[in-house]
């Protein structure tokens, strides 16, 4: 695996290789393509339809998030009316004066109908994509980085570092994220934004990833190739980063993709509890879903469509996580 690094050459502790018999078998075939774990994974991924579907959906969602204007010209927050009051409005919406727009079904130019406030559901979903996706990604990255680094250190080095990091994790983990969110959102009352809410969700969520990684590291570090790596003289750090971490990361990737879904729904739950992003400034699926619950029985479209958008995103990320996990695990690949 470290063959591409010519400087570090493992000294031979055993007898010289027999130049005669086994030499031909042992010889490195230089004409073969270069190979490492991630390159192999990529080759594997390319051949999977699930990977392509999820990748296309995710790329599409990212595109919607960056260029919402391409998909709708209706503003998500302006011109929201509860009912048609004037002739001008009547012509605009194509319905008679007096019609309730609040929770109304689809009208020409408004394919998914209207929210309780009379805003366009489709436009709000399109414009909310960015918020929900950003919160999900920021939280996941934050949690993954903190969890992987801290979990790997704790598991691999063990001893007091393990105890210290895991106890910090215990403290953070036990602090309910609702408390954290209320405090953080209150402290930044007048400038609440995506970063603040991501921090509120993610800063207290890393211990679970850290624990998963730690337990996986505990398992992996008992394996022969780790002993071998240390035996041939690789430093502990190098062993951890090149051998232990890549082989321990699969469960984290699954947890992270599911966690991304969790982060998006956590944002929604915070909205439900009243400490989410201000709904008039930030469009987000979470805000829309939690606002829609009062109309659950009479206007299910206000709840269903944002939920579908959310589920689709979640589905795509989980499918991606599945394929990436399979690809990263040479054994799974071999027997597929």
């Amino acid at each position: 695996m470290s063959s591409k690094n010519p400087v570090r050459r493992a000294p031979r502790f055993v007898a010289e290789v027999d130049e005669g018999g086994l030499g031909a078998v042992d010889a490195v075939r230089v004409s073969d393509r270069k190979s490492n774990l991630w390159l192999d994974a990529w080759r594997d991924l390319r051949s999977r339809w699930m990977f392509w579907i999820s990748a296309v959906i995710i790329l599409f969602i990212v595109f919607v998030a960056i260029f919402p204007g391409v998909f709708t010209s209706v503003p998500p927050n302006d011109n929201c009316i509860l009912s048609v009051q004037t002739q001008a409005q009547a012509e605009e919406f194509g319905v008679p004066v007096g019609t309730r727009i609040s929770n109304h079904g689809p009208l020409p130019g408004h394919p998914l109908g209207f929210t309780k406030q009379g805003c366009d559901v489709f436009s709000r979903i399109v414009h909310g994509t960015g918020t929900s996706l950003s919160v999900g990604i920021i939280v996941t990255v934050l949690v993954a980085i903190m969890g992987i680094v801290l979990g790997a250190f704790a598991g691999y080095f063990g001893g007091w570092l393990d105890s210290f990091l895991m106890r910090i994790g215990d403290i953070f983990f036990a602090i309910p994220y609702i408390l954290a969110a209320v405090v953080i959102m209150s402290m930044f009352l007048h400038d609440r934004n995506i970063w603040i809410i991501s921090l509120a969700i993610g800063f207290f969520a890393w211990p679970s990833t850290a624990r998963i990684l730690r337990s996986e590291v505990l398992r992996v570090k008992q394996l022969d190739f780790v002993t071998a790596s240390e035996a041939i003289g690789l430093s502990k750090f190098r062993t951890m980063f090149t051998h232990v971490m890549p082989n321990s990361i699969a469960p984290v990737i699954i947890i992270s993709t599911v966690g991304l879904a969790g982060a998006i729904t956590a944002e929604a739950t915070l909205s439900f509890l009243g400490v989410g992003l201000p709904n008039n400034i930030f469009m987000s699926w979470g805000n829309d879903i939690s606002a829609a619950q009062t109309s659950l029985r009479t206007a299910p479209q206000t709840l269903i469509y944002p939920s579908i958008a959310l589920s689709l995103t979640v589905l795509a990320f989980i499918m991606l996580g599945e394929t990436v996990r399979d690809a990263l695990d040479p054994k799974a690949r071999a027997t597929r």
Partner: peptide, 18 residues
């Protein structure tokens, strides 16, 4: 099982509860 669990995790807890 993938589809069913997906449906569940894609729902915020309060929606699921309601």
């Amino acid at each position: 099982s993938l589809v069913i669990t997906l449906l569940i995790i894609s729902m915020p807890v309060f929606v699921f509860a309601f």
